[in-house]
């Protein structure tokens, strides 16, 4: 996303990136970012907490005023839980077991890189396929 932020800003439009992955943001270096130290998948706040979601967004948008130098990152200062124990189990792979397993190898629990659309529900799939059969999806933009 940092590459996209840089391209949009280069075209003259100010951007602000939310992020929960500070190391990646530092590496890609978007124009402005607001860091929320939450587990991945909650970049804009906790589920169903509209009050906190709104406050997080307002605090992030303040970055448009407070960030004065390129690549500036503000720390929004919210904690996911009272302790940070959730961080201990993130991307900590289990040792692989079974025959012909090299010592120190990990279990590969990543999701397969499936090449067909992965619908959330069967009903979504039915609707999309029926739209395609009737002439396409005008709001789906395929760049390849």
């Amino acid at each position: 996303m940092g590459l996209i932020a840089r391209a949009i800003e280069s075209a003259g439009v100010p951007t602000l990136s939310l992020t929960s992955a500070l190391s990646i943001t530092r590496s890609v270096n978007p124009p402005r970012a607001a860091f929320l130290d939450y587990p991945l998948g909650h970049t804009a706040g906790p589920a169903f907490d509209r009050v906190l979601q709104r406050q997080i967004l307002l605090d992030a948008l303040a970055g448009f005023q407070t960030i004065q130098k390129p690549g500036g990152v503000i720390d929004l200062g919210y904690a996911w839980s009272e302790d940070d124990a959730w961080k201990d189990s993130v991307m900590q792979p289990r040792a692989a077991s079974g025959e012909n397993v090299e010592e120190g190898a990990f279990e590969d629990d990543r999701t397969a890189r499936l090449e067909t659309p992965q619908y959330q529900t069967a009903e979504d799939q039915r609707r999309a396929e029926s739209a395609l059969a009737r002439g396409g999806c005008p709001t789906c933009v395929f760049l390849e």
Partner: peptide, 21 residues
């Protein structure tokens, strides 16, 4: 990236909020 930059200009946006995961 070029596609979204083009859209941002065409849509006459004053700012863009980017939300990665």
């Amino acid at each position: 990236a070029p596609e979204f930059a083009r859209r941002a200009v065409e849509d006459q946006l004053d700012l863009v909020l980017l939300v990665p995961v």
